[in-house]
């Protein structure tokens, strides 16, 4: 009788301990704030990797035409970056949603047509609602079609992942690209015009003409690539098509 009671007590204690740990787990799960839980999720890791570690401009040396052609002013760089971001996210989501329907043999032409469709939409939108910006960017908005990383994201990521994850992946690349282009635009506009987003910063500034002409674009991007590689030598430095 005593033995049974003892055993019962032991079981009870065990049960109580179990209950305590499970309730603690249940209680502790929502207790971790979102900012700490978010970095552990897969989508967040994709996002951060694409923005920084695989930055399309300074790391992978991809999409150089708009990087140079559209960054003589900070606002142009930002607009080009955002236009590319929208086109990349939309194309990646479309490719991911249709990934089971597109036969493997014709996937590249299919991706090109999807991308061309979304770039056309972005181009028409800019022409209708922001005509001065569209005129300043010229053919560099339609040229997003041949932007290597838009097709690259579709082929390497969106063709194998869900639309939600592909959207985050494309968002990361797009944000990294927008960041790089805005940075380049800021440097070139500051030295070339003495202004920032059209607001005069230095009064009586002698413009560095070289920053506005094509040669300056090559020099600034080259130095940026060198600086990024110098301070974080790890990771991939590309230079493909």
């Amino acid at each position: 009788m005593l033995f049974v009671a003892k055993a019962g007590q032991k079981e009870l204690r065990q049960m109580a301990a179990e209950v305590k740990t499970t309730t603690m787990q249940q209680a502790s799960a929502p207790a971790i704030p979102l900012t700490q839980r978010l970095p552990q999720t897969k989508g967040w890791k994709e996002l951060v990797r694409d923005i920084w570690d695989d930055n399309p401009t300074f790391r992978m040396i991809l999409a150089m035409c708009p990087t140079m052609g559209a960054t003589n002013m900070a606002i142009n760089g930002m607009a080009q970056g955002l236009a590319t971001l929208v086109a990349t996210v939309a194309s990646s989501v479309t490719v991911a949603a249709l990934r089971t329907l597109i036969p493997a043999e014709v996937r590249l032409p299919a991706y090109m047509i999807i991308i061309a469709f979304w770039v056309t939409i972005v181009d028409i939108f800019l022409r209708a609602y922001l005509p001065p910006l569209s005129a300043a960017l010229g053919p560099y908005v339609p040229l997003i079609i041949t932007n290597c990383f838009v097709l690259g994201r579709a082929e390497a990521f969106a063709s194998q992942n869900s639309p939600g994850l592909s959207a985050l992946d494309a968002l990361g690349v797009g944000l990294g690209f927008t960041m790089s282009l805005t940075l380049l635009g800021i440097i070139r506009e500051l030295l070339g015009f003495g202004s920032l987003f059209g607001i005069q910063i230095f009064s009586g500034w002698t413009p560095w003409v070289i920053m506005i002409i094509p040669a300056g674009a090559f020099l600034v991007v080259g130095l940026y690539v060198g600086i990024v590689k110098h301070f974080s030598p790890g990771g991939q430095i590309g230079g493909g098509s």
């Binding site: 040396i61 090559f218 080259g222 130095l223 690539v225 060198g226 301070f231 430095i237 230079g239």
Partner: peptide
């Protein structure tokens, strides 16, 4: 310079 080797110097 080490950092400029490859694409960096090509762009310059």
């Amino acid at each position: 310079p080490e950092g400029l080797k490859g694409p960096g110097i090509a762009l310059i």
